[in-house]
C-alpha cells in the first residue's frame, strides 16, 4: 500500500463517517434549517415582502431566497465541523486519528469535506423549499455552485479552528452566535446595501459574508451589489488564511496533544 493510497482510503473513511453522522441524526441536522428557511420565506418573503417594492430590480422574494440558502450553507458547514470535531475531542476518539498513520492534511480535508456535504445537503433542501415560492433557475449555474462549495469550505475550516480551541460546548456556540450570526444577518440576506446610509455601506464592505451572499445571488439572479470576481477573491483569500491556520494548529497538536 503506497502512502497516497493510504491517505486516500483514510480520507474516504473520514468523509463516510462524517456523512453517516449527520444523516443518522437528520432530525437535528437537516430539518431545522429547512423549517427555518420555510418560516423566513413565509414571513419575510411572503407577508412582509409583498409590501416591499422591487430590490435591485427583482421581486423581494427572489432577492431573499439566495440569501436564505446561503445562510443555511454557512451555518451548517460551520456547525457540522465544530460539533463533530469537538465531540471527537470530548470523547477522546480524536485519538483514533492521532495514533493512525493519517496525515493532518488528510484529517483536515476529511472533516472539511464532511462539512461541505452537510452545507450542500442543507442548501439543496432549502432550495427545494424555495421552489414552493419561486422559480429557481440559476442564471450562472457553475458560478452558483462554485461559490456555494467554496463558502462551505471556508466555514468548515472556521468550524474546525473553533473546535480545536474549544474546551466546552459553550465555546462551540460563542462564535456562531456572536460573530457568525451578526455577520450573516448584516451580510445582505434581507436587504441590498444600496438601501443603507453611506457609512453603513462602507462598513458592510468589511463583512466577508456580504461577498459570498452577493456572489451566490449573482449566480442565481444575475444581480449583485458586488462584482463576482471580488466575491471569488474574498472567499479564496479566506480559505487560504483559515486553511493555513488550521494546518498549523493540527501540526502543533493544539488542543489535542499535550
Amino acid at each position: 500500500m503506497s502512502y497516497w493510497q493510504l491517505q486516500l482510503t483514510a480520507f474516504l473513511t473520514i468523509v463516510r463517517k462524517e456523512i453517516r453522522r449527520f444523516t443518522r441524526i437528520w432530525i437535528q441536522t437537516i430539518t431545522p434549517p429547512a423549517v427555518n428557511a420555510l418560516l423566513y420565506m413565509l414571513i419575510f418573503g411572503g407577508l412582509i415582502g409583498s409590501r416591499i417594492r422591487e430590490v435591485n430590480g427583482v421581486a423581494y422574494m427572489d432577492f431573499l431566497v439566495p440569501g436564505i440558502i446561503m445562510m443555511g450553507i454557512i451555518t451548517n458547514s460551520y456547525g457540522n465541523v465544530v460539533s463533530s470535531f469537538f465531540g471527537s475531542k470530548l470523547q477522546k476518539y480524536v485519538e483514533e486519528l492521532l495514533v493512525s498513520p493519517v496525515s493532518n492534511a488528510t484529517i483536515l480535508a476529511g472533516y472539511v469535506t464532511g462539512g461541505v456535504a452537510r452545507g450542500i445537503a442543507v442548501g439543496s433542501i432549502v432550495s427545494l423549499v424555495a421552489l414552493f415560492f419561486i422559480d429557481l433557475k440559476p442564471v450562472y449555474p457553475m458560478a452558483t455552485l462554485c461559490i456555494a462549495v467554496l463558502t462551505s469550505v471556508m466555514f468548515s475550516l472556521g468550524g474546525l479552528i473553533n473546535a480545536v480551541y474549544a474546551k466546552t460546548f459553550d465555546e462551540c456556540s460563542i462564535v456562531p452566535n456572536f460573530v457568525l450570526a451578526p455577520l450573516t444577518y448584516l451580510g445582505g440576506i434581507f436587504y441590498s446595501i444600496d438601501m443603507l446610509p453611506p457609512i453603513a455601506q462602507k462598513l458592510s464592505l468589511f463583512n466577508p459574508v456580504l461577498y459570498m451572499i452577493n456572489g451566490f445571488r449573482y449566480g442565481i439572479l444575475g444581480v449583485s451589489d458586488i462584482p463576482l470576481w471580488q466575491s471569488f477573491a474574498v472567499v479564496f483569500a479566506f480559505i487560504a488564511i483559515l486553511g493555513t491556520i488550521a494546518m498549523v494548529l493540527l501540526n502543533r497538536g493544539v488542543g489535542i496533544k499535550t
Partner: peptide, 20 residues
C-alpha cells in the same frame, strides 16, 4: 476513547480505514 454513540462494528472499520 471510542465514540460511544457509534455501533462498535463501525468503530473498528473506521480505524481500519484510517490505516489505509
Amino acid at each position: 476513547n471510542f465514540n460511544g454513540f457509534e455501533p462498535i462494528f463501525n468503530t473498528i472499520t473506521n480505524v481500519a480505514g484510517y490505516n489505509g
